[in-house]
Design a protein around this nucleic acid. Structure first.
Lengths: 192, 192
DNA sequence: CAAATTCTGTACCCACAGTTAAAAAACTAC
DNA sequence: GTAGTTTTTTAACTGTGGGTACAGAATTTG
């Protein structure tokens, strides 16, 4: 039909995701993007339309990979509490291992844009919902197996765990040593 | 000595705080600030030096008022758990009552700037430390009075509560109905 | 009052953010 | 090979971000 693209848009979205993740939305310039994606400005706007559209594609990509990773960890075999601990530990380790301390792109974007950008707010809210549902199912399983007291409200516990994850991702941004996050995880597991 | 200022810099810092709180750092322009403070650009830069310096003053002001409010709530008389609940409830209600859903200026600033601005990161970290210390003291009191099991690690519980607050302030940004936050609070108090 | 000092307002400045336009290049179908 | 389509490249262009310079206004000290 016509001249084919010389770059892969899907790869480009991943690269853009890294840039937005590191710098935030407002602080990322089109120049940053063309540099990171190694394409011309023309191609950038021809393919993605605008900075915001590219950002939203990057953010959706982030959501997909992150939720998949969390769900996979939670579906691992083993005791329920250990699986929760594994998920929280994975998050803590990821955040601490990242020299840039970028935290979570979705939480960062929420802090920066949720007030003005409904689409961002919706995406974040849904991500929290999905996370909460995954924890809810796990808690219910734990109550069936007797690992978790049937007296606790599974919905409330799921909300608590989700909120703990959200908190850790922002607290992790200013934490360099693992002890604070370790204490959070210990107390959380202890509270189940 | 010389011509006196026609505006009160302390008031101006408060007004600037509101603007940064609503729009974030990068999205706030000098024009936004002169409009909100009702002063000229000359006065703005003559008094505060730069956008960043004014922002830091606003952020410190925020920290002072917020930590004072939290400590005051926690020092109220009554059972320890009720005091924790009161503090968490106050946060939830504040966040939900705010039509702008601005959340917490410190957490927002952390998400936006912690990677690049060491001063912001330090301030946030210290704020978390102070909060954690306040909770720690309260937990210890609860263990003395028998309200809280002496088997729990007070430092870990304090870290958990602090993290819960941090999480709520970001989750509150995309939450319109109170139920999610209510569940978080219920499960948290239940976990003590 | 004059001098010294600091504040205010306006005008101005440069760099760059975000985007678009135009022209040339690469491809497919016929 | 050429027509038609889409991509790349390069060059622009407008608006504004963040800040400075300067002239005049208001004050205190002598």
């Amino acid at each position: 039909m016509a001249r084919p693209k010389e770059f892969d848009p899907e790869t480009a979205v991943n690269q853009a995701m890294e840039v937005f993740w590191r710098k935030g939305y407002a602080a990322t310039t089109p120049q940053d993007l063309v540099d990171a994606l190694s394409i011309g400005k023309g191609s950038l706007y021809n393919t993605f339309g605008s900075k915001r559209e590219l950002f939203l594609r990057a953010l959706r990509r982030y959501r997909d990979t992150q939720t998949a990773a969390l769900v996979e960890t939670l579906e691992q075999p083993g005791p329920v509490k250990e699986r929760v601990r594994a998920a929280l530990t994975a998050i803590a380790e990821t955040d601490l291992a990242d020299p840039d301390h970028r935290g979570c792109l979705a939480m960062n974007s929420t802090a920066e844009l949720a007030r003005t950008d409904k689409e961002v707010a919706d995406l974040s809210r849904r991500m929290l919902d999905v996370t909460e549902d995954a924890f809810h199912a796990l808690i219910a399983e734990g109550q069936r197996t007797g690992e978790i007291s049937p007296d606790r409200d599974p919905a409330a516990l799921a909300a608590l765990l989700t909120n703990t994850v959200a908190g850790m991702r922002i607290v992790g941004r200013v934490t360099e040593t693992p002890d604070r996050l370790t204490r959070i995880i210990d107390a959380t597991i202890d509270s189940l």
